[in-house]
Amino acid sequence: MSIQWFPGHMHLTRQAIRDRMKAGIDVVVELLDARCPGSSGNPLLQQLTQHKPSLKLLNKQDLADPARTAQWLAHFNALPRTRAQALEAKRAPAKALLAACRELAPTRTSALKPLRLLICGIPNVGKSTFINALMGGRRATKTGDEPGVTKVEQKLMLGHDCLIFDTPGMLWPKIAAPQAGWNLAASGAVGRNALDEELVALELIERLQAGYPQALQARYGLSADTGANAEELLALLARKRGAVLGGGQLNMQKAAEILIHEFRQGLLGRITLETPEQFGAWSAAALAAVQEAAEQTIEKE
């Protein structure tokens, strides 16, 4: 699924990050969705943040597969100048997070030289909830369950020696790896006008069949051992949940909405849609496809 969803405020965010980096940032704190840590990482940030030290926060860990979360933490912590932690945004452990940031920027230790953090991430990853928790429960930013709630950069003081810059959620202009696009759509990072929910649901069923067949069985009584394909399973879900139109026609759109909503709410269990190895393979394939297309264009010219 090649998604292109880059509203106007995201262009402004990109420029704001560029400007902020010029003014000086010590650590880039990037919130990721623990259900798809690779897909929810913004490759554009590496260009914009000039390879500054990075703290990767895998939010919504309570919805993610603990074993796969451990794999992702090990993956990120093995990267240079990078630390990673898993958390739930509402319970953000401020002391532990600040300690990790100070380890990455050890010279920023006083009010005269405050630690300067850039908080960033994709839409609907939980940044606003996270920042409100950091500020001790004080409602510092607006929150919501739709992508794109925060529209402008905010500057906040945490204590007397830490300055936080909060940026609106930002995707990148084109998500090349189809699997990453599906995962972002399923997780809620992409606006509804940029996706076909029935197609997203079918792809989600295939992911569940491969990695978490027990989730379909436990929640909907759908067995992955029947040999049914994703479309047939979605039709069975529609019947079981009464998603039926006049004349007995199945409402596949409604069934898709039910599945996606219940996945996002964690009602199917703790699920992570990708491993580091899988995401690496998807990214490599996408890069190869781009290079092949470029070579074909050159040959035609």
Results as ranks from 00 to 15, higher is better:
Arg102Ile: 07
Thr297Trp: 14
Lys155His: 13
Ser283Phe: 02
Lys300Asp: 13
Gln85Pro: 00
Gly248Ser: 08
Val27Tyr: 00
Gly188Pro: 02
Ala34Arg: 09
Trp172Glu: 12
Ser2Cys: 09
Glu197Asp: 12
Leu234Ile: 11
Tyr212Ala: 03
Ile131Lys: 04
Gly246Asn: 13
Gly38Tyr: 02
Thr143Trp: 06
Leu12Lys: 15
Leu184His: 00
Leu57Trp: 01
Ala177Glu: 03
Leu158Trp: 01
Gln46Ser: 14
Leu118Ile: 09
Leu202Tyr: 05
Leu268Tyr: 06
His9Val: 11
Ala186Pro: 01
Gln46Phe: 13
Gly280His: 02
Leu245Gly: 06
Ala228Gln: 14
Leu79Pro: 07
Pro106Phe: 04
Gln71Gly: 03
Glu206Met: 14
Trp172Ala: 07
Gly246Pro: 06
Glu274Gln: 03
Arg83Val: 02
Arg108Cys: 14
Pro168Val: 14
Glu146Asp: 09
Leu98Cys: 07
Glu203Thr: 06
Glu231Tyr: 10
Val149His: 04
Thr150Pro: 01
Asn251Gly: 08
Thr69Met: 07
Arg14Tyr: 09
Pro168Ile: 11
Leu236Tyr: 08
Phe263His: 10
Lys142Phe: 05
Asp33Arg: 04
Val28Gly: 01
Ala286Thr: 00
Arg83Leu: 12
Leu97Arg: 01
Ala78Arg: 05
Ala84Asp: 04
Leu79Arg: 15
Gly137Tyr: 03
Ile205Leu: 13
Lys90Asp: 08
Ile119His: 09
Asn124Pro: 04
Thr129Met: 06
Ala70Asp: 15
Ala185His: 03
Asn77Gln: 15
Glu203Gly: 08
Asp19Phe: 08
Gly246Gln: 15
Cys36Asn: 10
Glu203Arg: 14
His9Gly: 06
Ala201Ser: 10
Glu295Asp: 11
Leu267Asn: 15
Cys120Glu: 11
Leu259Val: 03
Asn132Pro: 05
His9Pro: 08
His9Gln: 11
